[in-house]
């Protein structure tokens, strides 16, 4: 598949300057994401994954380097083209599920795309819960709700920051299958940050492995298991082999720092 480049990251660095210290959270990051590609970013805690994603979203500026979306320099959030899915679902607790999904439409002063919302709610298994408050939904339902909220804007790019981090293993598998189902239908370009290496391999076309302090792209792993994938994939020898090698990378970069 020879698709166009959707996201071009060129020499992006992000330095946090606090009163007491300077942290190089991301350093000289250069890579691109193709249209319709599913990229997962893994790395040890604190290695700069969230920082990278925020640079891609336009929510905060890189200290140096550039991000281009469809060839256009990113300087601010692009609400019509980039959708963010945050950790902890991030649903407004005082709004019902459907009101949460409608929020972006209200902000953009656009009519709600009922057809798309309905369809997404259906795929997400959230039909019948439209009028429930987030406090009345399970963790998995909230996450699905926040994904529906992002997808209802029909963005070209979906940036996801450990969206399933807080879920138990079973719910997580279920969420992964749900996400793949949606992705196979819509073929959005996805950059997905996760702590879980197996989750990354299961979902991604390519896995970016980051090394910490400063956060650099240390390795890119192509994952070419055929799609649609099912959950038993994680028991195949080749899967386990990739898992081991990425794990060694992440572990190694964690303990062997200082070089």
């Amino acid at each position: 598949m020879a698709q166009a480049t959707r996201i071009q990251i060129t020499d992006v660095s992000k330095i946090y300057q606090t009163e007491t210290k300077t942290v190089e959270a991301v350093k000289n990051f250069t890579e691109s994401v193709k249209d319709g590609e599913f990229v997962c970013v893994v790395g040890a805690s604190g290695c700069g994954k969230t920082t990278l994603l925020w640079c891609l979203s336009g929510l905060h500026p890189a200290t140096s380097g550039t991000v281009h979306i469809d060839g256009e320099l990113l300087t601010k959030p692009l609400p019509d083209r980039i959708g963010m899915v945050f950790q902890d679902s991030n649903l407004l607790p005082w709004r019902t599920l459907i009101e949460n999904i409608e929020l972006p439409f209200q902000i953009k002063k656009k009519a709600v795309n009922r057809k798309l919302v309905d369809e997404l709610l259906d795929v997400a298994g959230l039909k019948g819960f439209e009028n429930s408050y987030p406090g009345e939904l399970s963790g998995g339902m909230k996450q699905r709700g926040s994904i529906v909220r992002a997808l209802a804007q029909d963005p070209e790019v979906l940036l996801m920051d450990e969206p399933f981090g807080a879920l138990d293993a079973f719910t997580r598998e279920e969420m992964n299958l749900f996400l793949l189902k949606v992705w196979e239908r819509t073929r959005k370009t996805i950059v997905f940050v996760t702590h879980s290496i197996s989750e990354a391999i299961f979902l991604a076309d390519r896995v970016w492995v980051m090394s910490p302090r400063p956060g650099r792209l240390s390795r890119i792993v192509d994952v070419d298991f055929p799609r649609p994938r099912d959950i038993d994939l994680q028991f195949e020898p080749k899967f386990i082999e990739i898992l081991k090698s990425i794990r060694e990378d992440v572990e190694g970069s964690k303990s062997g720092k200082g070089q």
Binding site: L59, F86, Q87, D88, L92
Partner: peptide
């Protein structure tokens, strides 16, 4: 994160106040 959510949808400062 809620503020960031609003901003990612292009909310103005006033909208952030009113809605979030």
């Amino acid at each position: 994160e809620l503020i960031a959510l609003g901003k990612s949808y292009g909310a103005t400062e006033f909208q952030l106040f009113r809605k979030i």
